[in-house]
C-alpha cells in the first residue's frame, strides 16, 4: 500500500489526502509529529527526506518529497482524467498551475504558519505576495467563467485545481481574506462540492450539502 507521511494541519499533506480520496486510492497514513515535536527535522526522518519537509509519499522503492509530483503519480495510477486534457496548450497550463501552487505555499502558506504555528518572518510581505497571487488566480478564473468554464484547465477538475486549492481555502488562517476574490470563492465552493471530497481542520465540505441537523 502507498504510504503517506502526514501532518493533519499541513496544507500540502491535505492536498495528497484530498487527491487520493477523490481518486478512491487508499493511503497508509503515518502521522509525523510536525508540531511541536519537529520530528520531520530529525536525523531518522532525513533518511526518507533530506530536506525535512512533509509530506513524503513512499510506494515500494519510490520516494516522493514534492507534493506536485505526488499528485501526478496518484493521477497516473488511478485516474488519468485528473491529469487534465493532453493537448499541448492544456498540458502546459496544468504545469503552470502546479508551479504556481508553490507560490501559494510560499506566500499564503507561510502567512498561515506564521499565524498558527508562530513561524518567524516578514508577515506583511507574505500577505502581500499572497494577495498578488490571488489576483492572478482571480483574473484567470474570471476568464474561465467568461468562457463558460469552472476549473483552471479544461472541462473537469484536475491536479491543477487540487494543487492550488488548499492554501487558498486556508488563506483566512494567515489573515488573508477572500472577500475581494469572487471567482476564487466560487471555485473553492465547486471543489468543496465534489463527490468524495474530504475535509481538514479549516476546510469543510459545503454545509449546504449536509443534511440539516433537525431535531423533531
Amino acid at each position: 500500500m502507498i504510504r503517506l507521511y502526514d501532518y493533519v494541519l499541513s496544507a500540502s499533506c491535505y492536498k495528497i489526502r484530498l487527491m487520493a480520496a477523490l481518486l478512491g486510492v487508499k493511503l497508509d497514513q503515518e502521522a509525523v509529529d510536525f508540531h511541536p515535536g519537529r520530528a520531520h527535522k530529525s536525523v531518522a526522518f532525513a533518511q526518507l527526506n533530506p530536506a525535512g519537509t512533509l509530506p513524503v509519499l513512499v510506494d515500494g522503492d519510490l520516494i516522493l518529497t514534492e507534493s506536485t509530483a505526488m499528485l501526478v503519480y496518484l493521477a497516473q495510477l488511478a485516474g488519468r482524467d485528473w491529469l487534465g486534457p493532453l493537448d499541448p496548450k492544456s498540458a502546459a497550463q496544468v504545469q503552470h498551475w502546479l508551479a504556481f501552487s508553490g507560490r501559494l505555499a510560499a506566500s499564503l502558506g507561510m502567512a498561515r504558519l506564521h499565524d498558527m504555528l508562530l513561524y518567524e518572518g516578514d508577515i506583511d510581505a507574505w500577505r502581500a505576495q499572497g494577495h498578488a497571487a490571488l489576483r492572478e488566480l482571480e483574473a484567470a478564473l474570471s476568464e474561465r467563467r467568461f468562457a463558460g468554464g469552472v476549473w483552471l484547465v479544461g472541462d473537469a477538475p484536475s491536479i491543477a485545481d487540487i494543487a492550488c486549492f488548499p492554501n487558498v481555502a486556508l488563506s483566512q488562517d494567515g489573515g488573508v481574506s477572500l472577500d475581494a476574490y469572487p471567482s476564487v470563492r466560487l471555485w473553492t465552493r465547486a471543489i468543496r462540492a465534489l463527490d468524495r471530497f474530504v475535509e481538514m481542520p479549516g476546510i469543510h465540505r459545503l454545509h449546504e450539502l449536509r443534511p440539516a441537523p433537525e431535531v423533531a
Partner: peptide
C-alpha cells in the same frame, strides 16, 4: 456591493 453573477443561489457573501 457586488454583481449578481458572483452570488448564485444558496450562497452568502460579505
Amino acid at each position: 456591493t457586488g454583481l449578481s453573477q458572483d452570488l448564485p443561489k444558496a450562497v452568502a457573501m460579505a
